[in-house]
Computed example of a mutant assay.
Amino acid sequence: MMNSQGGYPTVSVVLSVKNGGRDLPQALGTILNQSFADFELIAIDNGSTDETGPYLDSITDPRVRVFHQTDAGLAGALNRGISLARGRYIARQDHDDLADPSRIAKQVQFLESHPEHALIGTRAEIWVGDKPSGRFHDHPTEDEILRFDLIFNNPFVHSSVMVRKSALDRVGVYTTDPARQPPEDYELWSRISRQYRVANLPERLTVYREVPSSMSRAGAQPFLQKLVTISSENLAYATGVAEPEQVHVDMAALVHGAEALVSPKPDVEGMCAVLAEAGHRIGGGQTKPELAQRVLHAQAQIRHRFMLRQQPGYGLVWRAARNIRGHLRRLIPAAL
């Protein structure tokens, strides 16, 4: 057991729950049965009206610290948990997701061995309810690829992540700005990746339960606006620009399908040049093959979405070709 902070635990697991229902005991059980025992679990009862509060109060494990409050939103609840944390590493856990027994041990080992990294996630198996879906969140593992992917999307499973407390002290905690959350996790990982290296473990150490409403707690259009805001900020930072310019907004809006936010005459070649510059900077001046492929794919996506927007006939031809390819894929295996 590691305990080098004058009696404080090495890890603080932070969980916010509102009306956890039947999933909560199983999720908590996967944390309390971790092979790494030097942790505290900070459970924030975020305005529950079911049996969540009494259940949490009934837990006798001394590592569990329970706090009750009115609903402060996910970001507000997690920030309270972080403010109460005594560990040097902050691990996330959701009330309905499951953790492999080795998850915390492997993440602590990684951060101890990689002092330049501030964030470590894991790959995840996707369940729908209590059943495996056969699908996975097999996100990239390497820092450069993750930092490029973060320009547009979130390559981390929220409930799989462990972060250095010292990094949060430096870059700040979850944003509560309505213009940037949700997705508060994507926004925070973006800020962390600007100052530190990030990674995912290659093992699937998390079971992520897919919920229809998990993509956005605020509706599709407000969520899109926030994605474009964060993504354009990421693009600006990746190319050394202090604030997003129209080219960055156009790129983010095109990728996320936010047509109303695209300018009347977007500069497609300028957007592709921005992507090349971002890849060059992220790669430290030496764009490795996998990163180069990411850049080329992103440029192709931008050009494709630009053509769909500018030339309706292109979209009809593209959809017809896609349907033909899909039909051929179904026919070929049947003929073998």
Rank of each mutant, 00 (worst) to 15 (best):
L224D: 06
G47D: 13
G240A: 11
E277N: 08
N46T: 11
N153K: 14
R309G: 05
Q225C: 14
N200V: 09
Q286Y: 10
S213D: 09
F110I: 00
A300S: 15
L336A: 15
A242F: 14
S159D: 03
P140N: 09
L119D: 02
T175Q: 00
G29C: 15
K165Y: 04
I145F: 06
I282L: 00
D50A: 05
H248L: 11
P155K: 11
T122K: 01
V11E: 00
G172Q: 06
N46G: 04
R180K: 08
V14Q: 00
T60V: 09
A253R: 00
Q311N: 09
T287R: 01
C272V: 15
P178W: 02
H139D: 12
Y186Q: 07
Q69N: 08
V163Q: 01
Y55R: 06
R325V: 15
N323L: 15
E184P: 01
I192T: 10
V66S: 00
L336Q: 14
L291A: 01
W189T: 14
A220D: 12
D97M: 05
V128S: 15
P266I: 04
S159P: 01
R180D: 08
L150I: 10
T60H: 13
R80I: 13
Q310I: 08
Q246T: 10
L254A: 03
R217L: 12
E142A: 03
R22L: 15
E277K: 15
L205I: 01
